[in-house]
Amino acid sequence: MKDFPEVNGWTVVPLSGDLDDFAAPELRKLFDVLVDGGAPRLVVDLAAVGFVDSSGLNALIGAARRVREGGGGLRLAGAAPRVRDVVELSGVSAVLPLYPDVAAACG
């Protein structure tokens, strides 16, 4: 398992590529490992993500639900305009806070 940096008590998880139907199962596994490993506060860095669809959004929402059940939180950071638009138009940003960058999300 890859080690992820921690900033101000938040574990930063940088993602890259597309968050789609093909990536969603691996994304779910990653979040399961992180949550089961005791990372209750996650910042998902979307700066290198070029595309997200409903499968990717569902994986993020599922991770947020698991983290919240354990008393933590999940934040999204650094989304490019195309990804940010999908997150906002889908209504996911009402459930998962979207920050301009990792520094703001960890602040």
Rank of each mutant, 00 (worst) to 15 (best):
Val43Asn: 10
Ser55Ala: 15
Asp53His: 12
Gly91Thr: 02
Gly37Glu: 01
Leu98Tyr: 03
Ala48Met: 07
Pro100Val: 07
Val12Gln: 13
Asn8Pro: 07
Val43Asp: 02
Glu69Phe: 09
Gly9Leu: 12
Gly91Glu: 02
Val95Cys: 11
Gly38Thr: 01
Phe51Val: 06
Leu34Thr: 00
Met1Ile: 02
Val87Trp: 06
Ala63Ser: 12
Glu69Leu: 14
Gly70Pro: 01
Arg82Tyr: 01
Leu19Gln: 08
Asp20Phe: 03
Arg41Leu: 02
Ala24Gln: 03
Val67Gln: 13
Ala94Phe: 01
Arg82His: 05
Leu15Glu: 02
Leu57Val: 12
Phe22Gln: 14
Trp10Asp: 07
Leu27Gly: 01
Lys2His: 12
Tyr99Lys: 07
Glu26Cys: 03
Gly62Lys: 09
Pro97Ser: 07
Pro5Gln: 11
Asp101Gly: 06
Leu76Ala: 14
Asp20Trp: 06
Gly91Gln: 04
Val13Trp: 05
Gly9His: 11
Ala59Cys: 08
Pro25Asn: 07
Gly37His: 06
Pro14Gln: 06
Gly73Cys: 07
Phe51Thr: 02
Ala23Asp: 01
Gly72Tyr: 10
Leu15Gly: 03
Pro81Lys: 11
Ile61Asn: 13
Asp85Pro: 00
Gly9Phe: 08
Val43Ser: 10
Val12Asn: 14
Ala48Gln: 11
Leu57Tyr: 08
Val13Arg: 13
Ala48Thr: 00
Val52Tyr: 13
Cys106Asp: 00
Val43Ile: 12
Val87Leu: 15
Ala59Val: 04
Ala39Asp: 00
Ala80Gln: 15
Tyr99His: 15
Val12Tyr: 12
Gly17Phe: 06
Leu74Met: 14
Thr11Phe: 14
Ala77Asn: 08
Leu98Trp: 02
Ala103Gly: 08
Ala77Trp: 06
Arg65Glu: 03
Ala80Glu: 08
Val35Pro: 01
Asp85Thr: 06
Gly62Leu: 07
Pro5Arg: 15
Lys29Glu: 06
Gly72Val: 04
Ala47Tyr: 00
Arg66Val: 04
Asn58Ala: 15
Cys106Ile: 00
Ser90His: 07
Leu76Trp: 07
Asp53Phe: 10
Ala80Pro: 03
Gly107Cys: 05
Val44His: 10
Gly73Met: 08
Asn58Gln: 13
Arg84Thr: 00
Asp45Thr: 04
Ala104Ser: 14
Val87Met: 15
Val67Trp: 06
Gly72Cys: 11
Ala63Gly: 13
Arg41His: 10
Ser54Ile: 04
Arg41Pro: 00
Ala59Ile: 03
Asp36Val: 04
Arg82Met: 08
Gly78Phe: 10
Leu57Phe: 12
